[in-house]
Structures are given as structure tokens and as C-alpha cells.
């Protein structure tokens, strides 16, 4: 791959680049959703694409999420490859049936007669004081349901590769981008490690293959999306205190690379799982259960979850920080699991 030009992009720009390339190379790919044509999508994924491809292929919709997700499902069944922009993940509440009963079920219920090659883009997560209805991660509400692949990249390189893979996939894929990692201006300066040097060429990343962000020997920290960066901050601090932390980013919740996680815990014997979503019945529980089912005797100490403690996300800064899986909370969990 050509890495010579040293293009460092944000996640939003990297994802947009993949969308643009796929739309240029496959006339069946089109985007529809909220504020895509002129605004470029709330999170910038369609920035400028309206001018390039026109209003028929960058299709603004009314605020009718049930309607346009159902419509995209039908378009996908009939041979198109729609990319749907749903802005905030919180809004799945108004269109959950279209997601889980239409897009996610038609392939199975039709015994594969119909495919639903569709991408649903969601902006997830908080940390910028936007209140309880615009800050949720909601990974588990989607990953829990069969029939959809769920990806939550943490950096720009993955964002581009997974966007190419998602658009080309014949399955229904939910693409969750955390807003604070997106690099879109009004969400603040991007987290430096979420930006990546991006090859010019298109490339895909295989679903269900975790990335070891940092190798270590004492504790395994599994984190997804924005929490990956918090885990890395904690790991770097503890490195100075002599604790060797391995950080694993599964990158896709469905399929989940259980094998890589289990292999890491076999090595370290200790596990912390960090996720911005609600704790109970969530990603953190799923990871721990998966390791215990496979390796019940591997643990030197009880695993620890660092997630939202099952509370509505508050607005005020100190309260919101209290419920996020911040590096401070992850660091404390690592110290606890080392006891």
C-alpha cells in the first residue's frame, strides 16, 4: 500500500473517503438519511458528497427513521446498496422494529432468498455534555439481536477499511462511530490516536478480527470504540508503575473475536473490560462470560467490568464523567484486578 504521502486523516474523513470511492465505483451504492445532502451528515461522513453525486444519490430524508430504514431495506432487497445515516444512536428507539424486524430478519426468514446489503451509520457515545438522549452508546441493543453485523472502529485506519468492507458486504452492517473520536469540528479536537495515516487505495478489514493495540503480560484490557483510547491512557500510566497491560480492541461486536481475547487472558490471567454502554446485559458481560465458558480456571482474580453503571447519562460535566469508562476508572480497575 502507498503510505508515502503521509496523509493523516480523522475517522470521519477516512470513512467518507471509503463512501466516496464505493459510490464512484458501484452505481448501486447510494446514501440516504438525515442531513446528508447539504450538511454532509451530522458527523461529516457525507461531507461534500452531495455536490459530487447529486441529490438522487445523496438523498435527504424527512425525520422519519422508521420510514427510511424500511425504505433502505426494500432498496437493498431490490439490488441497491444503501448507506443509511441515522445521526445519533439514541434514535434507534424510534425505528428499532425497522432495524431488528426488517433489515436484520429478511435474510434469515426468506432462507437467503433475499439479501439486505445495507449499512446503517450511527453516531454513538457521549462525553461532551449532550444529555441523556444524545449520548448513549447502545452497542448491546444492536449486537444482542441476530441478523446484523455490528462494528465500532476506534481509529481512522479501521474506519476506512471497515467502511469499504461494510458497503461491499452482502449482510446488513451497523457502523457505529463514536462522536468524540470522529474528528468532526464541533465535537472538539480529535483524540490523536484516533487519527491514522491513511493509504490512498481502498482496502478492507475482515470482520471479527481483533487488534492488539498494545502487548502486555499482567492484565488484559478489552475495550471498544472510544474506550480503547481511555484504556491506552490507563495502560501507559501503569506501565510507569511496572504493570504490563495488554489492550485488545475487538473492533467488531458481531462477529466477536473471542479467540483472541481468550488467548490474551490465557497469557495474563487477569481481565478488565471497558465499554461506554450500560453495564448489565452488555458487551462487558459478554466478553467475560465468553472467557469463563472457555477457560473457567484461567483467572488469577475476578474479572472487572468498567461500563456505565446502569444509569441514565446525566448532563452536568462531573456527573457525566462519573459514569463514563474514563482512564481513571480503568486504571483503578486494573489496580484492583492486580490485587
Amino acid at each position: 500500500m502507498n503510505m508515502s504521502n503521509n496523509r493523516v486523516l480523522t475517522m470521519a474523513r477516512a470513512g467518507r473517503e471509503a463512501v466516496k470511492w464505493e459510490m464512484e465505483n458501484d452505481k448501486n451504492v447510494f446514501m440516504l438519511g438525515e442531513d446528508v445532502y447539504k450538511f454532509g451528515g451530522v458527523f461529516g461522513t457525507a461531507d461534500g458528497l452531495g455536490e459530487i453525486f447529486g441529490a438522487d444519490r445523496i438523498l435527504d430524508t424527512p425525520i422519519s427513521e422508521t420510514g427510511f430504514i424500511g425504505l433502505a431495506t426494500g432498496a437493498a432487497i431490490a439490488g441497491m446498496r444503501p448507506i443509511v445515516e441515522l445521526a445519533f444512536a439514541d434514535f434507534i428507539g424510534v425505528c428499532y422494529s425497522a432495524i431488528v424486524n426488517l433489515a436484520a430478519k429478511h435474510h434469515y426468514l426468506s432462507n437467503g432468498e433475499f439479501k439486505v446489503p445495507m449499512v446503517l451509520m450511527l453516531g454513538s457515545g457521549g462525553g461532551y455534555n449532550n444529555g441523556g438522549q444524545h449520548s448513549q452508546a447502545l452497542h448491546a441493543c444492536l449486537a444482542h439481536m441476530p441478523g446484523m453485523k455490528v462494528i465500532a472502529p476506534s481509529n481512522a485506519y479501521d474506519a476506512k477499511g471497515f467502511m469499504h468492507a461494510a458497503i461491499r458486504s452482502d449482510d446488513f452492517v451497523v457502523y457505529m462511530g463514536q462522536k468524540r473520536t470522529s474528528g468532526v469540528g464541533f465535537f472538539g479536537a480529535p483524540i490523536p490516536d484516533s487519527m491514522s495515516e491513511i493509504p490512498d487505495e481502498p482496502y478492507t478489514i475482515e470482520f471479527g478480527v481483533a487488534r492488539t493495540v498494545k502487548e502486555g503480560t499482567d492484565v488484559t484490557v478489552v475495550a471498544i470504540s472510544w474506550a480503547v483510547h481511555q484504556a491506552m491512557d490507563a495502560a501507559k500510566e501503569l506501565e510507569k508503575e511496572g504493570i504490563s497491560v495488554e489492550v485488545i480492541d475487538p473492533r467488531t461486536l458481531v462477529p466477536l473475536d473471542r479467540e483472541s481475547i481468550i488467548n490474551s487472558v490465557r497469557k495474563t490471567g487477569r481481565l478488565v473490560v471497558a465499554d461506554e454502554d450500560y453495564q448489565s446485559y452488555g458487551f462487558t458481560s459478554e466478553v467475560i462470560a465468553s472467557v469463563i465458558e472457555s477457560e473457567p480456571n484461567v483467572f488469577k482474580s475476578a474479572p472487572i467490568r468498567v461500563a456505565n453503571p446502569d444509569t441514565t447519562i446525566p448532563y452536568s460535566r462531573p456527573m457525566e464523567q462519573q459514569v463514563l469508562p474514563t482512564s481513571a476508572r480503568i486504571k483503578q480497575a486494573i489496580l484492583d484486578v492486580m490485587k
Binding site: N28, F30, D56, T66, G67, F68, I69, G70, L71, A72, T73, G74, A75, A76, I77, A78, G79, M80, P82, S97, A98, N101, L102, H106, S110, E113, F114
Partner: peptide, 28 residues
């Protein structure tokens, strides 16, 4: 598939897909 025929047990949820099929037919 041969008959371009789908169904859905949830009330009114065939609306979006049928409209999407109409859109796809026009785009293609």
C-alpha cells in the same frame, strides 16, 4: 425472489420496503 414477493408480520412494516423497492426500480 422469483415473484419479487416479501411479507412481514408486523403491522404496516411492509410500507418502507415496498417504497424502497419502488425507489430501487426507478434508480435502476
Amino acid at each position: 425472489k422469483e415473484h419479487k414477493f416479501c411479507s412481514s408480520g408486523i403491522i404496516a412494516e411492509g410500507m418502507g420496503p415496498a417504497a424502497g423497492m419502488a425507489l430501487a426500480s426507478r434508480m435502476q
